[in-house]
Computed example of a mutant assay.
Amino acid sequence: MVLRPPGPATRPRNRKQLIVEAAGQVFSERGYHAASMEEIAAGVGISAAALYRHFPNKYALFAECADVMADRLVAAMDEATLPDVLAALIRVTVAHRASGGLYRWEARYLERADRQALRAKFRQVVERVAELVRREYPFPGEHLRAVAALGAIGSITMHHTSIAQRRIEELLLASARGVVGADPATAAGSAGLVELPAQPVPRTRRAEILAAAIPLFARDGFANVTNGQIAQSVGLAPSAIYRHYPGKVDILVAACLQAAGLLAQAVERSLQQAADPLLALTAAYVAYSFEHNALNSVAEAEVRGLPVDLRQPLLLAQREHITAWEQQLRTARPELDSRQARLLVHAGFGVVVEAGRALRWQDTPDHRDVVTALVVGALR
């Protein structure tokens, strides 16, 4: 018997698909700018040179990742009934949980034409869900309820709570159906229950720099904002920034810590002498999200890109916030265990993000009330 030397390894036929899956996960976890082609290539088990044979640059790969996820959601629209469509969307999202969150925060880094094409596909999904919502729950606001339900479903991509896949799908379906069937009248007047801590008034140059940087980070993304832009907005020379912050990342950390502090105060105030603690907590979170939208979006979108040592205190604050929610939800629904409660809490957060965006974050009592009702629907 003659032994032959092993031949070259066979290239898998689905290598491009494997690359897109690995890249989507890296982009979702680390953010577009922090991700590298070398890291993505390592995740697939190939060299960076081999990766460039499939995609000419990081942007092309990023755009493909966002497009593929949107196409998967569009393909789930073939079902005939609202429960079946929601279940199909949930299956797709859960199956691609590690990479499915790409569109929520990172899509702003797409070029205009690509961003418009992606929005058109998501619009197709929303319109189909809204059509089915209108049939099953024929009262006003079907578009907003559809968007909010998709926010509840998409929330699974934004955290790592571990539950059996079948149970995840059951919980998300119940949550999404609770959203689309929510009656805004159930939370009427909830905005009047909330007394938020005031936005800090910038009284020092350091505070002025922070206040100027937050809307820039929210609008353009942390990586795209320069110290020169921040300095110009407060009438300083770029070099003067360094007398107050060692670097741009330190401004971002300060913004995230400010968001965490204001949110903690809002939670504490909402739970004092509340007749319905879960409703009070929900109303406070919704009010905070509207009133401090730029600050909150920066903290949510950019914390993943921070160095590990700078991220730890922020992650600790996030865990404490989730724990407060978990306790209130399990009091209202004792059949839930802690992981199930956390999953639903994140679903509620997803509702706020997507419903708030749909309402363009226009802060009115009516908007706060309706979003509060949608979140309560997701939780209860």
Rank of each mutant, 00 (worst) to 15 (best):
M1L: 02
L3A: 10
L3S: 08
P6S: 05
G7M: 09
P8N: 03
A9M: 08
Q17G: 01
A22C: 01
A23F: 09
A23T: 02
Q25T: 08
R30V: 06
H33V: 07
H33D: 10
A49L: 12
A49H: 11
F55C: 01
Y59W: 04
V68F: 11
M69V: 05
A70E: 01
A76W: 11
M77G: 03
E79N: 05
P83K: 06
A87K: 09
A88V: 06
V92G: 00
V94F: 00
R97P: 00
A98F: 03
S99E: 13
G101K: 03
L102G: 02
W105H: 15
E111P: 04
R112H: 15
D114V: 09
Q116M: 15
F122L: 10
R128E: 06
A130V: 09
V133P: 01
Y137P: 02
F139I: 11
G141K: 05
G141A: 07
L150C: 12
M158Y: 07
I163C: 01
L172Y: 08
A174V: 14
R177L: 15
R177M: 14
V180K: 03
A188C: 13
G189K: 07
G192T: 02
A198N: 05
E208P: 00
L216S: 06
F217D: 07
G221T: 12
A223C: 02
I230C: 14
G235S: 12
A237Y: 10
I251K: 06
I251C: 07
A254H: 05
A255V: 09
L257N: 04
A259Q: 10
L262M: 08
L262F: 13
A264D: 13
S270H: 06
S270Y: 06
Q273N: 13
L278P: 00
V286P: 12
A287E: 04
Y288D: 00
E291M: 03
H292Q: 11
N293C: 09
N293K: 08
R311Y: 04
Q312I: 09
L314P: 03
L316Q: 13
H321N: 05
I322M: 12
W325Q: 03
R330P: 14
D337L: 01
S338N: 12
F349A: 15
V351C: 11
A358L: 07
D369G: 15
T372Y: 09
L374E: 02
V375C: 10
G377F: 10
L379T: 04
